Computed example of a mutant assay.
Amino acid sequence: MTTGRPVLTISGLNVDYGTGPGAVHALRDIDLTLHRGEVLGLAGESGSGKSTLAYAVTRLLSPPGVITGGDVLYQPPQDGAAPVDLLALTPQELRAFRWQELSIVFQGAMNSLNPVHTVHSQLTDVLRAHRPDMKSPERTARAEELLTLVGISRDRLGAFPHQLSGGMR
């Protein structure tokens, strides 16, 4: 069911592991359109290319993975905004884009928080890195807002990861 305008369009995406005659063709001619407001789930056997697709789209594919063809276009939510060609972004543009528009939640997300730092420390550290002009009270307010957005009480900012449920982590 289509619920809005396209937000992500993948056309003819190809990914190989390695180069030359020994390359493994992991993804071939992948076409996919994700519409705004739509939820997409990828299912498949281990080794079928789900993670390779996610890493390729976000340009987090590690060597020897190579995108050998295709297009990945992101359509910003603003009316009339030009699509962004994710495969053409410079490293600096890609870093800013990932921070503002795109992210990936890894399978081991439950273990991604550092056990010796509070939730507050970890959330505000990310804000400090990506928004250095933001003052400490603003970072705390944003961290509280982020917790609220996902249904977690603001008082959990002082918690350590082991004090949160798996779903909260």
Results as ranks from 00 to 15, higher is better:
129 A>M: 06
151 G>M: 04
3 T>W: 13
87 L>F: 05
9 T>R: 15
44 G>Q: 07
55 Y>W: 01
6 P>T: 07
55 Y>M: 07
101 E>N: 14
27 L>M: 11
47 G>N: 08
115 P>A: 10
134 M>T: 14
112 S>L: 08
123 L>E: 15
50 K>C: 07
164 L>W: 02
159 A>Y: 12
61 L>W: 10
6 P>D: 01
61 L>S: 03
35 H>Q: 10
109 A>P: 04
24 V>T: 14
96 A>K: 06
131 R>T: 01
156 R>G: 06
112 S>I: 04
116 V>W: 12
34 L>W: 03
145 E>G: 09
115 P>M: 12
169 R>Y: 14
103 S>Y: 06
143 A>M: 02
128 R>P: 00
59 R>E: 03
106 F>T: 07
124 T>W: 04
12 G>H: 09
101 E>G: 13
49 G>H: 05
58 T>R: 06
143 A>S: 07
27 L>N: 06
45 E>D: 07
3 T>D: 11
84 V>G: 08
168 M>E: 01
163 Q>Y: 06
14 N>S: 00
70 G>Q: 05
124 T>E: 10
85 D>L: 12
46 S>V: 04
60 L>G: 02
31 D>N: 12
36 R>T: 07
89 L>S: 10
67 I>M: 06
133 D>V: 12
91 P>G: 10
121 S>F: 11
142 R>I: 03
108 G>E: 09
81 A>F: 09
138 E>Y: 04
18 G>M: 03
34 L>G: 02
121 S>E: 13
33 T>I: 15
96 A>Y: 00
83 P>Y: 14
24 V>D: 04
146 L>P: 03
54 A>Y: 06
143 A>L: 04
84 V>P: 13
104 I>A: 08
82 A>Y: 07
